[in-house]
Amino acid sequence: MIEIIGLKKSFNSKKVLDGVDLAIERGKITVIIGRSGEGKSVLIKHIIGLLRPDSGKILLDSKEITALREREFNELRKHFGMLFQGSALFDSMTVAENVGFPLKEHTGLHDDEVMKVVAEKLHRVGLVGIEGMMPADLSGGMKKRVGLARAIVMDPEIVIFDEPTTGLDPIMADSVAELMLETQRALKTTYIVITHDIQLTYKIADMVAMLHQGKIIAKGTVEDIKKNPNPVLKQFLEGSAEGPIKVY
C-alpha cells in the first residue's frame, strides 16, 4: 500500500499540491486524473523521489519514504519502473541498450543474458526484431512500447505511467491501454497512471482519483466516479467547457 498523507508542495509561492491524501492499493491500477497543470506530474515525482515535499509524507508499506536519503531512495527506485510522457528513451542507445540499461546497471548479468531478457520483454510488449534500431527511427507508439519494456525489465513492484497515451492516435492509444492491462494482469504489478484521457481511465482503472487545485476531490472505482455528483468531476469527465472549471 502506498499512502500519501497531507502532501504539500509549492514552487515560487505557487501552491501546486495543497494537502493531497490518497491510498494506492498494491496489485491494482490506480489512475489519477486531472487537468493539465494541476500537479499530477509533481505528485508522481514525489512518489519516486524526484521531488521532496514541503510538508506531508508518503508511506510505502507503512515505511516513510519521503524522509529517505538520496542513496537510500536510489536503492528503493530499483523496485520502481516509470514510463515517461515522451518515453524518455536514451537517444544515443539502441532499443536493446535502452531496455537492457537498468539490468546492466544493477545486475551482474552477462551481455547474452541481458539480451535474452531484453528480447523477452520486447516480445511481451509486442515488438520483435527491433533491438538494433535507434529511438529516432521509432514511431510514437513503438517508443511507448519500448519505454514500457524498459520500465518492466527489472520486474518492478510498482510502475508509474505519465500520460501514456498522449500524442498517440486513438487506435494506438487503445493498443497501449490493452498492453498495460495485459502486462499488469500477467505481472500483478501496482500501476499508477496519471492521465487526462477519460477513455483510458474507464478501460484500465481499478481505482480513480481526481486531482484538482492541489487536492484529491474524488476517488473510487470507475462506477463510483461515474455516479459522483461533484460538478467539477462531472465537467471533467464530460469534457465540457461549461461548468465550475473556468477555461480562462
Binding site: I48, N74, L76, G81, F84, Q85, L89, D91, H106
Partner: peptide
Amino acid sequence: TELGTMRVTEQIDALHTMGVN
C-alpha cells in the same frame, strides 16, 4: 546541447528513476 536535450526530454529524470546517479 546533449545534456540540455536529455534534461528537457526527461532522460535525466529517467536515469534518476532507474536508481542511476
